[in-house]
Simulated assay, not measured.
Amino acid sequence: MTDDLPDREPDLPSAFLDIPGVRNFRDAGGVGALRKGVLYRSGSFHNLAPEGAQRLKALGLRTVIDLRSPVELEVWPDLRHGLDHETLNLPTLPANREDTDRPWPEDQETLYPFMAETAGPSLVAAIRRLGTSDGVPAVVHCAVGKDRTGLTIAVVQSLLGASDADITADFLLSNAGLGLLDGPTPYLDETGTERVSRPVSAPLLASSLTWIRTHHGSVPAYLRSHGTTEADLTALRTNLSA
């Protein structure tokens, strides 16, 4: 997955911020009790421009949570341009296909339940960092900020009391941020293979959340099954709430 996609649409919702060299950058706040200015979401920083770095510095950026695979990081490492934030690499998906007994997803419809099944450790580590006093403002990103980032942000917003409808509305903004409102777009993946980037849809995110709730009963219970404590959840809510 990479961000070789068309330039983003000229008229984007107010949640989007112009960070030169970074795709699909927007504030995740204003959804549920999540306050604005503490948690952002985006595509990768591998094309970050110096001007973009200065704008991130002005936001007070302290943490970048990178959900990409080790291969993606090797091919497209994030640029910093002197920024001194902490970076955490917390892959949503297994590093190797052999690390899971489930068939590797071949399309979006199977990707989203698969992410829910494999993302637990990544989500727990992200939540712990976001709950620390020096952890925010933070950015969560993957390659283009729609699938892996979409699930991670949805979980955080859910923990902050957001409704599924509001979470989904925010999730769907990636179609505007990535120029996917008119349908699928070709791109080159980390191996140089041409693939097709497809728009996100409400049923995709619903399939992840349904997997979580079917197997664990609730988002907090799912996270607890992976080691999150009540203290972790309280710290997150305290640190990010409006």
Rank of each mutant, 00 (worst) to 15 (best):
81 H>N: 05
84 D>R: 07
38 V>I: 11
90 L>N: 06
7 D>P: 14
38 V>T: 14
40 Y>R: 06
72 E>D: 09
93 L>I: 10
112 Y>H: 06
120 G>E: 05
86 E>K: 13
75 V>E: 07
45 F>H: 05
60 G>Y: 07
100 T>H: 11
92 T>S: 14
94 P>T: 02
89 N>C: 12
21 G>E: 00
10 P>H: 03
108 Q>K: 13
52 G>V: 02
3 D>C: 07
43 G>S: 12
77 P>F: 05
89 N>D: 00
49 A>E: 14
39 L>F: 02
23 R>G: 09
65 I>R: 06
12 L>P: 10
39 L>A: 03
92 T>A: 15
29 G>I: 04
120 G>K: 08
81 H>M: 00
9 E>W: 04
92 T>Y: 02
95 A>Y: 01
8 R>F: 02
102 R>N: 05
3 D>W: 04
24 N>R: 06
107 D>E: 12
97 R>N: 06
61 L>Y: 14
52 G>N: 01
15 A>F: 04
91 P>Q: 08
98 E>M: 10
25 F>P: 01
112 Y>A: 00
28 A>N: 02
78 D>V: 04
66 D>F: 13
78 D>K: 13
87 T>K: 15
41 R>D: 08
84 D>G: 02
18 D>Q: 08
77 P>Q: 04
31 V>F: 01
113 P>N: 09
75 V>Y: 11
109 E>Y: 11
120 G>M: 10
69 S>W: 10
64 V>K: 00
26 R>H: 10
16 F>E: 07
34 L>R: 01
84 D>E: 15
80 R>M: 05
83 L>E: 12
9 E>K: 07
4 D>V: 07
123 L>Y: 07
88 L>I: 03
91 P>T: 05
26 R>C: 11
9 E>T: 14
109 E>P: 04
45 F>D: 00
3 D>G: 14
97 R>Q: 15
110 T>K: 09
45 F>A: 01
100 T>G: 11
80 R>K: 14
91 P>N: 00
59 L>D: 11
65 I>N: 09
48 L>R: 01
20 P>R: 00
52 G>I: 01
60 G>M: 04
24 N>Q: 08
23 R>W: 08
120 G>Y: 03
65 I>Q: 01
60 G>T: 02
41 R>P: 10
107 D>R: 13
101 D>Y: 08
54 Q>T: 14
23 R>S: 09
10 P>W: 02
7 D>W: 04
88 L>M: 11
107 D>I: 06
61 L>C: 06
79 L>Y: 03
95 A>I: 14
111 L>Q: 06
50 P>I: 03
64 V>L: 15
80 R>T: 09
4 D>L: 13
68 R>D: 07
62 R>D: 08
73 L>T: 13
96 N>A: 14
96 N>K: 15
95 A>R: 13
12 L>C: 10
86 E>S: 15
